[in-house]
Design a protein around this nucleic acid. Sequence first.
DNA 1: GTTTTGATGATACGCTCGTATCATCAAAAC
DNA 2: GTTTTGATGATACGAGCGTATCATCAAAAC
Lengths: 219, 219
Amino acid sequence: MPKRVDHDLRRREIGEALLRIASTRGLQAASMREVAAEAGVSLRLVQYYFHTKQELLLGALAYLGEQLSARVEAHIRALGLPPTPRSLVYGTLTAILPTDAESRRLTRTYAAYYTLVLDEPQLAADHGTSYPDALERFLAGHLRAAQQTGQVDPGLDAPTVAAGLLALTNGLGSSVLGGQRDGDAALAILTYHLDRLFGGDHHVDGSRTEPDAAGTVAP
Amino acid sequence: MPKRVDHDLRRREIGEALLRIASTRGLQAASMREVAAEAGVSLRLVQYYFHTKQELLLGALAYLGEQLSARVEAHIRALGLPPTPRSLVYGTLTAILPTDAESRRLTRTYAAYYTLVLDEPQLAADHGTSYPDALERFLAGHLRAAQQTGQVDPGLDAPTVAAGLLALTNGLGSSVLGGQRDGDAALAILTYHLDRLFGGDHHVDGSRTEPDAAGTVAP
DNA sequence: GTTTTGATGATACGCTCGTATCATCAAAAC
DNA sequence: GTTTTGATGATACGAGCGTATCATCAAAAC
């Protein structure tokens, strides 16, 4: 046998080269040859470590998921330990909003994969839709915890609010990537809604936004 | 001269053939040859009416905008005339949520163009980002009107809430297209948040409970 | 009735794509 | 030291792409 090489490491290097291309020029610019050039290897090597392009796309998607999870966890930790329900929700959502170079890169790449799944739905079966679902349940669980500690109106439906928050964040992220507004503006909109949700945890001012949260009661 | 043909009509037919392909198989499947086949004309004719592919893409995008505007207006009218601030906001947002075949087609195509703009940002300069901005101002204006009539908490910041509602709706639409939930579930989430915003039903205009959209609210 | 010209058909060029094939080289195995 | 085998390089193939070119045909213009 010749020199044994670390296949997992090589695969990761090539996969992350694809992610780098996808984050700047889109997935459709990520041809096998471009990926090889970006990774500094020959086309043959890309084929060697990923037998087909679909394998490369799916492998890189897994790496993207790892990077995204790592960022979410880091963002939560940055808000203080031990994490509170509020810091968990706030940290998670702000982590996936494109406010800096890294998050912009991640969300941009994620958006590219989203369109790919729209075009070839059989990809979703192998690897994909479970992540947003898990995120939603994660948020709903901590929202419910916040309701039990009185930080969030207990009259709200936690799963519905969690789904709304995630959709809001994703929609804001799309507007940032599309150039409609910058990351700071999007963050301001997100925090506005989060602060409305997590009423006053310190002091209670007179004109709180809580009364309309009941929703079903006519004023 | 030979028979004079209606160029605008021909262009529309070809452009809508592209939109049909984009709504089902994505924009990347919409090659000149595929568009020609879908429109039932020769490749040469597509080239004749749209000198280049970019011209075709931009022309079809204009038609898509028309179709979207028409649907929004129709949805608003369906909620009763004259329109109220509430029906304007509700009708606009539910119109752009993929709940039926037509809205799914429209939003799916719009998503395809969104990714195209991400990949080639110079397209946005010619034709694009103004639409969501206009929609947001439209919503903010009618939200402010609803605040003046007491339907919406006057303490809220109308532009921020409008941006949030539009982002929420777009995010929900993405989740529907991505297969995370169906259109009815997304509509339920949207109406839940709208009903929280528009506190109690109004009485002055008469009891105009929405014809088709009622009943989806589930706390 | 000839000429002009808008509209259309057939086909080719150069490029890039994903994938496959053939050859090579060096380290491990014996 | 020869053989085996994992790793890598060079190159080719067939298909699809956007675009360009050349020819044709029929209706209007004169």
